[in-house]
């Protein structure tokens, strides 16, 4: 681990709560690296979490997520008359190169307007081999921001695939960003990702194809109204907080992020969604889903670790070899390994 930590643990937690940005930055690294110190700080900070509005933003690379966040965060900092400015954190996840383990984290390039604001904190995270659009410690990093008093926490996902449902389990509000293209393209993009959307955004609405896209998106939503079987796949049924509840009509908004067009409407829609969640009790439901997901993941990882330690490598390798030579089926291999002794 790094020796550069000059702040000792106890004071790290206190400093983070007091708004010390250096302490916050260092704690985020500890948490990201899953160090024992990081875990201890998370324990101490946990009682202070649960206050922030977590907003996920997902969509293909290049669709304009970072540019939108720049504008949205700016609006939360400089809201319309009569509304309070909120402290904003942004967690931007980018892919890790599977070849080198390195990463280029480029989301800050689009977030210039937020520079110099002491109530904005942007942190880039590499996915570090985790699939599903988030890094394995994104949820914990978000907890630190929450405990540090950031009221709005944006999470930008990698945006690579169909299986980015993790963000819907973490966030209260999930924004899915599409860009104009042919209807077919949209169909292909996301049979899976549309169902996690609370708000659909068609960014780059300066393109002439925008009408087509909106039409295609609307008909997809109409074809599968909330509450039908299409939306209530097995997983959705088991995780009631994952999809939009019945009486929230998923809005489709057009934006041109580079021109700040449509941003105020998006801001208002996010606020309305937060109100809706609060009034319908769905907020609490989503917090349940979030925390249960975190717990279940921890249990899973820790059981695997424990089991790995309990079984001799010889037994494991022998079973593996016999699987590879097709003398043992995967299910038989599992049975042997769960018993822990070779037959």
């Amino acid at each position: 681990m790094r020796l550069k930590e000059k702040l000792v643990l106890g004071s790290l937690v206190g400093s983070v709560r007091d708004g010390n940005r250096l302490a916050l930055a260092r704690l985020l690294s500890q948490v990201e690296n899953n160090t024992p110190e990081g875990k201890e700080c998370l324990n101490a900070l946990f009682p202070y979490t649960g206050k922030a509005h977590l907003i996920g933003i997902t969509g293909a690379p290049g669709s304009g997520k970072s540019t939108l966040l720049n504008q949205l965060a700016y609006t939360f900092r400089h809201p319309p008359e009569g509304e309070q400015a909120r402290r904003v954190a942004i967690v931007a996840v980018d892919p890790t190169s599977p070849f080198s383990g390195g990463a280029i984290l480029g989301d800050r390039v689009r977030m210039r307007e937020l520079a110099g604001d002491p109530d904005v904190f942007i942190r880039s995270m590499a996915a570090r081999g985790s699939l599903g659009g988030l890094a394995s410690r994104t949820a914990e990093v978000v907890q630190v921001f929450d405990a540090a008093g950031f009221e709005i926490i944006f999470i930008e996902t990698v945006g690579a695939g169909q299986n980015e449902v993790d963000i819907a389990r973490l966030a209260h509000t999930t924004i899915v960003v599409e860009t104009p293209g042919t209807g077919d393209e949209i169909q292909a993009i996301k049979a899976g990702i549309l169902e996690i959307a609370d708000i659909l955004v068609i960014n780059k609405a300066d393109s002439p194809l925008v009408d087509n896209s909106e039409f295609a998106l609307r008909s997809m939503l109409d074809m599968a109204p909330i509450g039908t079987d299409y939306y209530h796949s097995m997983e959705m049924r088991n995780n009631p907080g994952l999809n939009s509840p019945k009486d929230w009509q998923i809005p489709i908004l057009r934006t041109v992020a580079t021109e700040r067009q449509g941003i105020d409407a998006l801001y208002q829609t996010i606020q309305s969604h937060a109100e809706f969640l609060q009034e319908s009790q769905e907020w609490i439901e989503r917090e349940r889903v979030n925390l249960q997901t975190i717990l279940d993941n921890l249990i899973q990882n820790s059981l695997i670790d424990q089991w790995r330690k309990s079984i001799s490598n010889d037994v494991y390798q022998t079973v593996l070899e016999s699987l590879i030579s097709r003398q043992t089926s995967p299910y038989q291999a599992l049975q042997i390994l769960m018993k822990g002794v070779l037959p």
């Binding site: 940005r21 930055a25 800050r108 390039v109 210039r112 520079a115």
Partner: peptide
């Protein structure tokens, strides 16, 4: 194998130092 935070053109010294801090 490093994680590189890339910030783009025309950064002021203030922007650079603030990004270095936030990104640790």
């Amino acid at each position: 194998g490093m994680e590189v935070i890339y910030t783009g053109l025309r950064q002021t010294p203030e922007m650079i130092a603030d990004a270095a801090l936030q990104e640790d």
